[in-house]
Amino acid sequence: MAYQPKSYRKFLAGTVSAAVVASAIAPVASASFTDVAGSVHADDIATLVAKGYIKGYADGTFKPDKSLTRGEAAIIFSRILKDAGVTEKGAGFPDVPASNAELAEAVAIVQAAGIMTGDEKGNFNPNANITREQMAKVVAEAFKLTKPADYTTKVTDLDKAGSWAREYIQTLEANGVTKNTEFMPKQNVTRGQFASFVVRAMNVGVTAANITGVTVVDLNTLEVTFNGELKEVKKEDFAIQGVEIESVSIKAAAAAEAKTTVVVIKTKTALEEGKSYSVSYKGQTTDKTKVSQSRLCGEHFFGSLRVLSITS
C-alpha cells in the first residue's frame, strides 16, 4: 500500500508512538518508572508516556537500556497506522506465528505499509534486535525525512555502516534526529534511544521560519506562535539574549486553532521597557522572532496584563 508523503508524514508527526513492550508483558500506565530517573532519555520517555505511546513493565521499570526487537517495533508502527484507521494487511511472514495474534497483525500491517520488510530469505525475524543503522532506515522512511543534496556529514564512523544505510544515517543527522558524531551503526538501538529518536523526528520541519509572531503578555511572559504543530517543546530549544528562561510550555487551547502552536515562555529575567529582544528557536532567528523596541517604548505595561503584539 502506498502513501502520499505529505499526508502520511503529517499523520506520523501527530500520532507517533514508540518503545512499547511485547503483548505478553503487562504494561505500566504511569510515567513513574523506577529506572528512568537520571537517564538522558528521561524527558523524551516522559513526553511519549504522557501521550499514551510508551508503556513499561509490570515491575514498574521501563528498561531504557534494553534493546528493542523487530517485533516490538512492528507493534509500535502498527499501532500508529491503526490509530489512523489503516487496516490493510500484507501476507505476513513464515517465521511470525499466527498464534501470536497481536504480533502477526502488527507485522502484516507494517508490511503492507512498506515500513518494515523481511530479509532475503523471506523471514521477518521478530525476535532479532534492531541495530542503529536499521533504525535509521525505519525512522527516515516512516517520517519521510530528506536531506539537502549538498549536505556534508560530520559522522566519523559512517564507513562502518552498510552502504545501504549511510544515506539514512545522514538523513537523520541532517534533520537533528541523531546528534552524535559517532553513530555506532552496528550497535543495537535501546528503548531509551528509540524514544529520543522518535521525539526528535516528531518535530522535524518546524523551525524558526515557522514562527509567525511573538506576543508580550507581561514582563516575564512571552507567547511564540508557530505555523505548524509542535507536539513537544524543550527549554533548551529557546533562547533570548540577556534573558534567563525559566520554562516553556505549549498553550493547548491555542495549539488547536488553525493548525498553529502557541508556546508560552516564562522568564526569570524581567523584560526591560525600551529594549529590543529576539527569541531564538534551535539557534535560529528571523524578523518574526524580534520584539520591536518601539512598541515596548510606546506602551507602559508594568503591573498590567495588557497584551502587546510584536510585529516584524
Rank of each mutant, 00 (worst) to 15 (best):
Met1His: 14
Gln4Gly: 14
Lys6Phe: 09
Gly14Phe: 02
Thr15Gly: 02
Thr15Ala: 10
Val16Ser: 13
Val20Gly: 10
Val21Cys: 07
Val21Pro: 01
Ser23Ile: 08
Ala26Gly: 06
Val28Pro: 00
Ala31Ser: 14
Ser32Asp: 15
Phe33Gly: 03
Thr34Val: 12
Thr34Glu: 08
Val36Trp: 00
Gly38Pro: 05
Ser39Glu: 11
His41Trp: 15
Asp44Val: 00
Ala50Val: 09
Lys55Pro: 01
Gly56Met: 07
Tyr57Ile: 07
Ala58Gly: 04
Thr61Ala: 10
Phe62Arg: 07
Phe62Met: 12
Lys66His: 14
Glu72Ser: 09
Ala73Glu: 08
Ile75Glu: 11
Ile75Leu: 15
Ile75Phe: 06
Phe77Trp: 13
Phe77Met: 11
Ser78Asn: 11
Ile80Met: 15
Lys82Val: 11
Ala84Tyr: 12
Ala84Pro: 09
Ala91Pro: 09
Phe93Ala: 07
Asp95Cys: 03
Val96Lys: 00
Val96Ile: 04
Asn100Met: 08
Glu105Asp: 15
Val107Leu: 09
Ala108Phe: 02
Ile109Cys: 02
Gln111Phe: 00
Ala113Gln: 00
Ala113Ser: 04
Ala113Lys: 00
Ile115His: 03
Ile115Pro: 02
Gly122Thr: 07
Phe124Met: 03
Asn125Ser: 12
Arg132His: 05
Glu133Pro: 00
Ala136Met: 07
Val138Leu: 08
Val139Asp: 02
Ala140Trp: 01
Glu141Cys: 12
Phe143Val: 09
Lys154Glu: 13
Asp157Val: 05
Asp159Tyr: 12
Ala161Phe: 02
Trp164Val: 09
Ala165Lys: 03
Ala165Asp: 04
Glu167Asp: 15
Ile169Trp: 00
Ile169Asp: 00
Gln170Trp: 05
Thr171His: 01
Asn175Lys: 07
Gly176Arg: 03
Gly176Cys: 06
Lys179His: 05
Asn180Ser: 14
Asn180Thr: 11
Phe183Ser: 01
Phe183Leu: 04
Met184Thr: 14
Asn188Arg: 06
Gly192Val: 03
Ala195Glu: 01
Ala195Pro: 00
Ala201Leu: 07
Asn203Thr: 10
Asn203Gln: 12
Thr207Ser: 15
Asn210Ala: 05
Asn210Asp: 07
Asn210Trp: 01
Gly213Val: 01
Thr215Leu: 13
Asp218Trp: 09
Leu219Ala: 13
Leu222Ala: 08
Asn227Phe: 00
Gly228Ser: 04
Glu229Lys: 00
Lys231Ala: 10
Lys235Arg: 14
Glu236Trp: 08
Ala239Cys: 06
Ala239Ile: 04
Val243Pro: 01
Ile245Val: 08
Ile245Arg: 01
Ser247Leu: 07
Ser247Trp: 06
Val248Asp: 05
Ile250Thr: 08
Ala253Cys: 04
Lys259His: 07
Thr269Val: 10
Lys275Ile: 08
Lys275Pro: 02
Tyr277Glu: 06
Ser278Val: 12
Lys282Ala: 01
Thr285Pro: 02
Thr285Asn: 05
Thr285Leu: 03
Thr286Asn: 09
Arg295Glu: 13
Gly298Phe: 10
His300Cys: 11
Ser304Glu: 11
Leu305Tyr: 13
Val307Met: 15
Thr311Gly: 09
Ser312Arg: 15
Ser312Ile: 04
